[in-house]
Design a protein around this nucleic acid. Structure first.
Ligand code: NAD
Ligand code: NAD
Lengths: 228, 228
DNA sequence: AATACTTTGTGCCTTCGTTCACAAGCCAGG
DNA sequence: CCTGGCTTGTGAACGAAGGCACAAAGTATT
């Protein structure tokens, strides 16, 4: 119960859930709800309510006992904890199939993410307009980064170029990368990297699918915890 | 050290790493490497070597002390544990920006994933050809599922339709879903769901970016563990 | 055959995360 | 003002995951 929002040490597991809570709260607010109990919010998000409360307690939240949480206030608290007081300026690098889809995605704006630059190295692509932005050469990344205060790069280049491009990104002063290329990047420890690898996701699903196939017959207690 | 590969109870954390190992091994095999030590493989993937060895031990692996692991044999072991002995047949539902990018993605084939159907409900899209496949109506999902033995569905519809479509998917007999819509699905407990939410990923990065910005000044020991 | 060297597989301890369960605190209603 | 009923915030128990460190088990060398 420290002074304020910025206590060092929100657990990683909590941080990964905060965006989920925020999304659920935004959606509740849109439907006119002004107050939620931890129980209600927890079922919406699909987590245990005690976990939810503990998560919120890390940001020194202001729930009211017997009542619940004020939706807008809690949203603000979470936004602030996540550093979303200002929109995050994002650059997308590699304007192929995936890069174009990302650029065209209109789900970012409402969640504090603004795409401010599209980059590629292919002269055939540079200069074309995609989703209201003009594709620029990667060579301009340092200038673009400082001019538009880019904080996050999305890497959508082929795996072969990913490391090389990541190095450029870091050299340009960006310290957070969302990597879509199926390769692990070797970068300084102060650079945050998150990876989205679809084939990996599918393979994890394949494992579980196989499990239920195998486990289906040997009459196992199927553990039907209702998600209701 | 049980009889074989199919021991019940590979930890979840291990399962999520197995695809990474498999990818690294495939890439090593491509460059002609036939044998790796846990140390080498671990640095490629970016994990602790003891963790790697423990992970492999869950599949009753056959490493050779003093030598390491046979690359192709280990690949087979992992593939088998993951249930990739046959390609996973995947259906993509919702052929918008993202669905098209997924359909055009050529990185699946080499990793045991085959896209066998593209579905939408929009008559304007149905019938068009994308990446060699014809878009079919969602109404045909049950037939398509049984005919082509679809095991996994990728949901790329707007968030508003996601639950509804997911219900159809389950009704068609599919028990594994990769959900790209930013919403949590409520489904029977025996259906495996994994979610890919890009805005969430960005927000997590935003948090860490903020942390290093705040922590940057108060002279903290930056913990530069070399990923080498 | 014996010795030196390498690398696995794993027991054990530590750290992190989850869940339970309940006292503390707040509101509403009489 | 006081009582009853909810819901929060959190201590404590539990469980999962991570990592160290070393015996066990193999290869290579003499
Ligand atoms: N398409 C998908 O749905 C999908 C899904 C999962 C992962 N991915 C991954 O995302 C990445 C991109 O996929 P894609 O299908 O869009 O590929 P793509 O080939 O369509 O596009 C790649 C783009 O990156 C550009 N590029 C290449 N090297 C570059 C460099 N050094 N600097 C700047 N730009 C460069 C190319 O000019 C091209 O425009 C790949 O790593 C792929 O594995 C794609
Ligand atoms: N575009 C991206 O890069 C991106 C990134 C992250 C997440 N997403 C998410 O992925 C989903 C799709 O995004 P998008 O940009 O491709 O949207 P989109 O609007 O371009 O495409 C949606 C497609 O789904 C189809 N559809 C709608 N309702 C359907 C139904 N009931 N049954 C079958 N098909 C239906 C539509 O006809 C359309 O073709 C959204 O939920 C979005 O939030 C997209």
């Amino acid at each position: 119960m420290g002074s304020a929002t910025e206590r060092r040490g929100i657990p990683d597991a909590t941080v990964t859930r905060l965006p989920e809570y925020l999304r659920a709260l935004t959606s509740l607010a849109d439907t006119g709800v002004t107050s939620v109990s931890s129980e209600e919010l927890a079922t919406v998000v699909g987590v245990n309510s005690a976990k939810l409360r503990k998560d919120l307690s890390y940001l020194g939240s202001y729930g009211v006992r017997g009542v619940g949480y004020d939706v807008t206030h809690l949203s603000d608290q979470i936004s602030s904890a996540l550093g979303l007081t200002r929109d995050q300026a994002v650059a997308i690098i590699g304007m192929g199939n995936l890069g174009r889809a990302l650029a065209a995605y209109n789900g970012f704006a409402s969640r504090g993410v603004e795409v401010v630059a599209l980059l590629d190295h292919d002269p055939a692509v540079i200069g074309s307009r995609i989703a209201g932005l003009t594709v620029e050469p990667v060579a301009d990344l340092p200038r673009i980064t400082s001019e538009r205060e880019v904080t996050i790069a999305m890497l959508a280049t082929p795996a072969g170029s990913a490391q090389e491009v990541a190095d450029l990104v870091v050299a340009a002063g960006i310290t957070a990368i969302l990597n879509f290329a199926p390769t692990s990047l070797e970068l300084p420890a102060d650079v945050q990297v998150r990876k989205v690898d679809l084939a990996t996701e599918v393979q994890i699903l394949a494992f579980h699918a196989q499990q239920s196939r195998l486990g289906g017959l040997p009459a196992e207690p199927v553990l039907t915890e209702a998600v209701q």
